[in-house]
Write a protein that binds this DNA or RNA. Structure first.
Lengths: 131, 131
DNA sequence: GCGAATGTACGAGACCTATCGTACTTCGCG
DNA sequence: CGCGAAGTACGATAGGTCTCGTACATTCGC
């Protein structure tokens, strides 16, 4: 829905999401393979609903965060929608569950388990995310 | 990563594998995010045991295949061992299952499902009939 | 209308990855 | 011992990704 005008250099108010059939396993895996994005998905999962972009404590700049959200969206992991100045994010649970049953849950559980293990083990290199 | 002693420029006969605790979810996800590697893991999974390196019909050169096997090994997804001129590969099922319960299975199932859907791409949307 | 808040776009830089071809090592066999 | 087979290493190349800073757009509240 083109709100007012569609200026040549403006940020599009309409966000393109891949259709369910266009979601590929490799893409989802790739999207989830990044520590920052995995963290985002983890938060989104616990939020169980929508979430603004700026409630994440990721150690990256705003631009980078935008980039990660875009990757997540373009790979079919999340949905994004504008709401005033904020942008709400939500997991595509149904689509993901339908395409890859149990995948999201399993990965998220594994991520939490690893995070817990890492915290208890005095994670030094684990916290950085880079190996 | 721990450097395996390279005597004088030869191919090391000893292969370094990460310990179970060193296996990271992001690495496993990343390893699985590549179509070639996912295919390898799929074959390895069905083989249920060891497999030589050269039974894969991946559309890549031998060098590239070696590279992928190495990634898989260094990320803790497979085990490799020399056996004469051949090198046997096997999934680290136990370690993976212990660290990330159900992950390998879920991903592999998703991969097979997607592959099946892709083969019957003509009527994929109708064939699934899922809502 | 103006300013603040939220987020985006556009480069740029550094790093990693996937791919290849070629040369090489190692092993098994005759 | 020499040869073929199986893999590896290395270098090169093309492309992707992650990160950033800065400039800009959009909306809300006044």
């Amino acid at each position: 829905m083109p709100a007012t005008s569609t200026p040549s250099g403006g940020a599009p108010r309409v966000l393109g999401h891949p259709s369910r059939d266009a979601i590929r396993l490799e893409d989802v895996l790739h999207a989830l393979a990044d520590p920052v994005r995995l963290g985002i998905v983890l938060v989104l999962d616990e939020a169980e609903g929508e979430c603004s972009c700026s409630v994440f404590d990721a150690p990256v700049s705003k631009s980078t965060l935008t980039h990660h959200f875009r990757v997540l969206r373009e790979h079919g992991v999340i949905t994004q929608a504008y709401r005033g100045t904020a942008k709400m994010n939500a997991l595509r649970r149904d689509d993901l569950e339908d395409l890859f049953p149990g995948l999201l849950d399993t990965v998220l559980t594994a991520a939490r388990r690893q995070a817990a293990a890492g915290l208890g083990a005095g994670a030094s290199a684990a916290a950085t995310g880079r190996a």
